[in-house]
Amino acid sequence: MAEAHHNEVDAASGVSTTGHEWDGIRELNNPLPRWWLWTFYACIAWAVAYWVVYPAWPMVSSYTSGVLGWRSRDAVQVQLAGLRAQRAVFAEKLEAASLDQIEQNPELLAFARAQGRAAFGDNCAPCHGAGAGGAKGYPNLNDDDWLWGGSLEQIHATITHGARSTDDAGHQGNMPAFGTDGILQRPDILAAADYVRSLSGLPPAPDAQIAKGKEVFEANCAACHGPEGKGNQELGAPNLTDGIWLYGSSRADIVADITHGRGGIMPAWGGRLDEGTIKALTVYVHTLGGGK
C-alpha cells in the first residue's frame, strides 16, 4: 500500500509524498538539500576520524590516547613556554639586576610593579588582601611598620624564606604563651597588658596597674621587645610603642596575645616562585608606600 502512494503528488503544493498517512493527512516528501546531507555525512566521518586521532574514549583507569598522542597538558606547556619566552627579555633583566637597580630604572620598575601586582594577586592576596591591606593577624604591607624589616633586602629575604616556615633559613621567633604555659598568672598578665598599652599612649583602664606591669614587662618581655618596647626585627618582635597593632589594641586583645602567644606563619616562596618573580614582588611591596 505504501509503495502505491509513494510517488503520489500532493495537489495543493505540487510536492511528492512519502506514503505516510494519518487520518487523511499525508506527509510531503521534502528531502534535505543534497549539500546539507553531505555536510552531515562529513561530520560523521570527521567524528570517527577524531576518535582515532585524538583522545576520545574513557577506559577503566585510562583513556584511548589517539594516534597523534596529543595531550592537553602538553598544549598548556607549549603555551607556558611561549609566555616565558615572551617575558624572557624583562625576566632576564630582572634576574640580572639588583633590587636597587630595578627601583632606579623606570622601565624595569614599571615592569616589576606590573608583574609584582599580578604575582601578588595570585600568591599573597589570600592572606594580605588584594591591595595588601592586610587583616587581623596578617600584616598590612602598605604601612611603615615592619615585623621583619622593610628594606628591599629584608623584604626579599622574608618572601624567599618565610617566617616560622618550613625553610630553615626563614625567620624564627615566637611569642610564648605566658598564660597557658603557666609562666605568668592572670593578674600579672593584666598588669603587663596595661603597661604595654601605656607605651603607645592608649588610654589606661580604671584599675590599671602600670607600675606592676612595668616590672612584669622588664622581667619577661624586654628580652625580645626591648627595654623600651621598641621591638626587635631580628626576632620579629613588634614595636609596641607605635600606633599599629597586628592583633588589635584593646586590653582584651593584648591579654589574649600574652596568654596564648602569637606566631603567624609566612610561607617560604623560594622554591615555588622563580627569582625574577620574587624580585618583582619585593619591589612591588616595597613601593606600596611603606618601604624603608
Partner: peptide, 10 residues
C-alpha cells in the same frame, strides 16, 4: 583596598 593606611606615628 585599603582605603587608608594607619602609619606607625599615628
Amino acid at each position: 583596598n585599603p582605603f587608608f593606611v594607619l602609619l606607625s606615628d599615628g
